[in-house]
């Protein structure tokens, strides 16, 4: 392997190329949950992934850590194609890539103690003695802000926020490099959300973790992410640094999505800045030809119906999949 290659490896922890994940729902119909997605995640950063429900963000995250096998395309983790891994290498990969699930009520086994839940992964990956294991569980509980008495309790004794902390401790137990956070806060109360997000940021600083943060809460994604990707109906439509995306979105869908965030400011007249989208997300089973957003896009033209726009770098580090984003950016009013 050449030197440039090794240099690139240290830069990107995940490289996703042309990733597709289809589910066959019947003999004739295929659900295209993730369709030709390209993205990279740099080491140590948080990539936010936003979009409406059913846009494929969770499927994308799960395919990246091989909870699903991709239909086509590749996912490279530290330069290694993960779909070709098996045996020891696969085990090693699973140790390095972990996930925190959305629903803290459903993702903890009700019949296991918290200590057992956290140490389950360690039993597979490390050979700790009982004493070491207990010590390690106590350390982890301490790191996620719980006292060590919790090790002997059961999940039903804990509140939602505490359970989500256990979910985080379980992911950290095997010392991963990369964690997929799949809507880790959407089942929690506002004040608890803040606690969990603060914890995630703290842990990232301590361990140089890389996160894929999946959420539909756009304000929270802006808060935690370095770069943000926007998905619509299985496609990645925009990918950029967090500041550029929220201050200056280029894709019409991103613009509408950001304008729809309600702000906690009664003075502001929301309807003035809102871009209203007509209709709802079409079914991913038979998505429209061409650009998938065109039926709800007020700028759609003939070209959008014929040609699927590819994700291209419009500005340095700012990727957009839209045929008309440059002209719209220059003359937004004329084209309405």
């Amino acid at each position: 392997m050449s030197e440039t290659n090794t240099a690139r490896q240290t830069d990107n922890i995940i490289e996703v190329t042309d990733l597709c994940k289809y589910f066959r729902v019947s003999r004739k119909a295929t659900l295209k949950a993730v369709d030709h997605v390209n993205l990279t995640i740099r080491r140590g950063e948080t990539l936010g992934l936003v979009g409406e429900s059913g846009c494929g963000k969770t499927t994308c995250g799960r395919t990246m850590i091989r909870l699903y096998n991709p239909t086509s395309g590749t996912v490279k983790f530290n330069g290694q194609d993960i779909s070709k891994l098996s045996g020891k290498e696969l085990l090693q990969f699973k140790k390095n890539a972990q996930i925190i699930f959305q629903d803290p009520y459903a993702s903890l086994d009700p019949r296991m103690t918290i200590g057992e839940i956290i140490s389950e992964g360690m039993n597979v990956h490390f050979h700790y003695s009982e004493e070491e294991k207990r010590q390690r569980v106590n350390d982890l509980l301490h790191r996620v802000g719980l006292s060590q008495d919790y090790a002997n309790r059961f999940a039903h004794e804990l509140s939602g926020g505490q359970r989500q902390r256990i979910g985080i401790a379980r992911a950290l137990a095997v010392e991963p490099q990369f964690i997929v956070c799949d809507e880790p806060i959407s089942a929690l109360d506002v004040s608890i959300q803040a606690q969990v997000v603060n914890l995630l940021i703290k842990l990232q600083r301590e361990d140089q973790l890389t996160y894929l943060f999946i959420s539909h809460d756009l304000a929270m994604v802006k808060h935690i992410s370095d770069r943000v990707g926007v998905m619509y109906l299985g496609n990645l439509v925009e990918l950029s640094s967090n500041v550029a995306l929220y201050d200056h979105p280029l894709h019409p869908y991103t613009k509408a999505l950001i304008s729809a965030i309600p702000t906690a400011d009664p003075e502001e007249d929301m309807s003035a800045r809102q871009i209203k989208l007509e209709g709802e997300v079409p079914s991913p089973i038979n998505p429209p030809e061409g650009c998938r957003f065109r039926q709800r896009c007020r700028y759609a033209c003939d070209r959008c119906a014929q040609e699927t726009p590819a994700l291209r770098e419009v500005k340095p580090g700012h990727f957009v999949a839209c045929h008309r984003c440059e002209e719209l950016d220059e003359h937004p009013e004329e084209n309405q």
Partner: peptide
């Protein structure tokens, strides 16, 4: 105050610690 300051807004600086209420 706690409720109002624990939600991130688009205007707030990223990756700053959010105000979080302690306890339950």
């Amino acid at each position: 105050w706690a409720l109002l300051s624990s939600v991130p807004t688009l205007a707030k600086e990223s990756k700053q610690e959010l105000y979080a209420l302690k306890g339950t």
